[in-house]
Simulated assay, not measured.
Amino acid sequence: MPCCPFCSSDMVYPLLNTLRCKRCKNIWKEGEENPGRPAACGSEGTSLRIRKKTDPLETRMKRKLDEYLTRSKGKFCFSAMPWQAGDISQELFMRYLKRCVKDRSLAEEKDRYGRTWYLRP
């Protein structure tokens, strides 16, 4: 089984003629020709066609965080703002937020209603 070309995870499973990653939720097709890309993770006979990817996952999450902070004037909460579905899952983004809080590049505070707000320190 190949590993994910987006996040290099081994948690890949086939579903409806595609390969899907459990970690980053990306989808790609197996068996289509893509001469510019070598076979992934040592699988010699398989060529993978990957969806168009513009930036690494870390950069896309930073951009998403900046978008949320800019839209809500420097402070946002998931229960106050709806999640916009896209190429990043909400679970993966929440893990990124927790890592930013741990690194102290982002502050986390709770209001009197129990909602968690994220802001720059």
Rank of each mutant, 00 (worst) to 15 (best):
R71L: 02
Y68F: 12
P38M: 02
P121Y: 00
W83I: 02
R95N: 08
D87W: 01
E108P: 00
L92Y: 04
C4R: 10
R63C: 05
P38T: 04
G74M: 01
Y96S: 03
I88K: 03
C77P: 04
L69K: 05
L48V: 14
T116S: 13
L19P: 00
S79W: 06
E108I: 00
M81K: 08
R99L: 14
L69G: 06
G42D: 11
M94H: 04
A40N: 05
C77W: 05
P121V: 01
K52R: 07
K102C: 07
K22S: 13
C3Y: 14
S47D: 01
T18Q: 11
Y113Q: 11
E91P: 00
D66H: 09
R99M: 10
E33V: 10
D103C: 05
C100L: 13
Y118D: 03
G114I: 08
D66L: 13
L65Y: 10
S8I: 08
F78C: 04
D87P: 00
Y13F: 15
R99N: 13
D55F: 12
L65N: 12
E91Q: 11
D10H: 15
K25N: 08
L15M: 11
D111M: 01
E67N: 07
Y113L: 11
S47R: 12
E32N: 08
K73Q: 09
R63W: 06
Q84S: 11
E44Y: 06
T46I: 07
K53W: 10
W28E: 04
S43T: 10
C3N: 14
A39K: 08
K22P: 00
G74I: 01
K73N: 12
Y118A: 08
C77G: 04
F93C: 04
M94R: 13
L119S: 10
T54G: 06
C7L: 15
C77S: 14
E58D: 13
I88Y: 03
G36F: 10
Y113T: 06
F78N: 05
N34W: 02
S72V: 02
S47N: 09
K29T: 10
L15W: 03
W83S: 09
V12S: 01
E109F: 04
L16T: 14
K75Y: 02
G36P: 01
A85Q: 11
A85W: 03
M11A: 15
L65D: 08
E91W: 02
S8V: 14
V101Y: 02
M61Y: 00
E109A: 15
K102H: 15
R20M: 09
I50G: 09
L65W: 09
K102W: 01
V101K: 05
L48F: 09
P38Q: 02
E33K: 05
K22C: 04
S47M: 04
R120V: 11
R23V: 15
R115N: 13
F93N: 05
R71C: 00
C24D: 08
K29C: 05
D103S: 09
Y96C: 00
A80H: 09
P82E: 09
D55R: 11
Y13I: 09
E33C: 03
E58T: 12
P14V: 10
T116F: 07
